[in-house]
Each structure stands twice: as C-alpha cells, then as structure tokens.
Design a binder for these strands. Structure first.
Lengths: 138, 138
DNA sequence: GACTTGACTTAGACAATGTCCATTGTAGGA
DNA sequence: TCCTACAATGGACATTGTCTAAGTCAAGTC
C-alpha cells in the first residue's frame, strides 16, 4: 500500500493523517468495504476521523482511479482497491461475501451493433450471483 | 398489461385499485422506473395512494417474478416489467437512460471453475455503460 | 344486498446511506 | 516561522427505503 501512498503523493495529493489511514484500511485483495466499514476501521486508528472525511477521501480515490466503486448489493456502495487489474465480481446471495473473478470471453464484443442503440460504450460490469460454500453447507 | 392483471388474479392476488394502478404504470418496453417515479405516476391516477403501498406492491411483484429489480445506478432501485424475457442493460452515464439489450455469448460459461471459489452460481447480471446518442451530440 | 374476515392501505415515524456547508485546523511551500 | 490554500470536522439535511398501528375494503358466504 506504500505504493499507493507514493503514487498519490507523486500526483500532488496532499497527505494527511486521515487520508493515510483511509488508504491503509483499503489495502489487500478481495477487499470490498462499505464507506461505513472503512470509517469504523479508520476510527480504530484515528478516533477523531469524521464520516464526511471518509466519504470525501473515498470519493477522491475513486476520481483518481485508484479505487473502484462497486454496487453488488442494493445497499451501500463498496470500495475496491484493486483498480489496476480489471475484474468482475462474484457475490453470495446469502451472506454477501464478494470475490474478484476474471472471466474469459469478451462481453463487449458480445453486444451486436444493432443492440447498441447508438451508444458509445466504454465499460462493462458483470456480477455473478450465487451461494458460497459456507452458506451452502450451512 | 391486462395479461399481467389476469395472471395475478389467477394466482390469487387480491385486486385493489392501488395494485391495478401500479401494475398499469409499469406497462411497456424499456420501462425502468424508480419506486418514487412509480409513485408519482400512480398518484396522477389515484391521488391517495401512499408511498408504502407502492413499495409493498413493487416488492410483491418482484417476489412473484413479474417484475425485476434493477440497480443500474447507485441511487434508487428500478423496476423492469420485462421479467419474462432475459436481458441485460445498457446505461447512459450522463443522462441515465436505460435500454434493454440481448448480448450473444454466455457469461456464465466464461467463468472457469477455478474462478468460482466453490460458489453455486445461479445468475449473471451484465451492465454496459456508455454515452447515448443524445448526450454525445449535446 | 348485507355481513364477515383477513388481507390491504395509510400516514407518519424511523433507519440507513450519503451530501453539503460553515467553521476550524494544518501540510507544505516561501 | 509564517501563510495560505486545501483538508477535516460535525451537524444539518436529503434521499431512499422499512416498519407499525389503526383504519379500510375485496371477495366469499349467506
């Protein structure tokens, strides 16, 4: 994650204790925290950090392209630090667990021109839904 | 839409003025209204209808499989009456316009076993994002 | 047609998530 | 060290959705 901090500093991002903590909380694979979860973990390290700052910082990281917003459920947005490796998501319908997945195939190529309605398409998002091993056996 | 009303009645769905209005509002192709939009249109025909009833009715239609819930943006859920023909969605990033699309290809088959993490997958949701012709020229 | 009953509807309180703003604080350059 | 622009704070507000208690009504029965 020091990578991320370095990159951000190099891009002129003003470094503060709050921003550092938010970036650190987002480190790792298969991390998909909600803003509130990020806030909760950030508070453990920096008790005074406010909700608004967490929202602001997450929004900035998304704008900078360092973090992706993911909406796998219909509740809170989740934040995925794995922004530099394109991937899709697999979600457990019971417990909400999320895994990053890398399907073969080309969904964009699968959409014929007649089905594009004149849109200029820039992105495809694929969400697989199912039940995870834990929930199946439970 | 009388089809839908007939089907519902046949399934023992108690018919009320409110439910009829909600079902009628949802009629058509490329219809993807939010609960609030459904409520607004329902109020035009039945001024006393309450928000709670619209939410309840939409929830029931989803449970019955007559309407799909769609989350194309991160704001409100949208309701898609075209539940009997499988399809995906194409969304304009600027104005939010939504079209139903039918890609070729098999996204489920494109996910290798090694990428399934033991999940039992039941559904795939694909959302194409881009800019619609209106917004491009504007 | 009137009665009955359980399902439906209502209004409003409440909850969860997110945004905005005025004020206060501070990182980093001069 | 001092300045200044940018960041953080906290609390009000907005949006979307859920819940509940009380009233209302659709549809079956007589």
């Amino acid at each position: 994650m020091s990578d991320l901090l370095e990159r951000l500093r190099g891009r002129g991002w003003r470094m503060t204790a709050q921003r550092r903590v938010v970036a650190e909380v987002l480190d790792g694979d298969h991390v998909h925290l909600t803003a509130d979860e990020v806030h909760a973990r950030a508070v453990e390290r920096l008790p005074e950090i406010s909700r608004a700052t967490v929202y602001n910082t997450l929004g900035e990281l998304v704008t900078l392209g360092e973090v992706l917003e993911v909406s796998t459920d219909r509740r809170a947005k989740r934040y995925d630090p794995n922004a530099h490796r394109p991937h899709h998501h697999l979600v457990c319908a019971r417990c909400g667990a999320i895994r990053d997945v890398h399907p073969t195939g080309d969904p964009l190529g699968d959409l014929p021109a007649t089905e594009r309605f004149g849109f200029t398409i820039s992105d495809v998002e694929v969400t697989y839904r199912g039940v995870c091993p834990n929930c199946v056996s439970a």
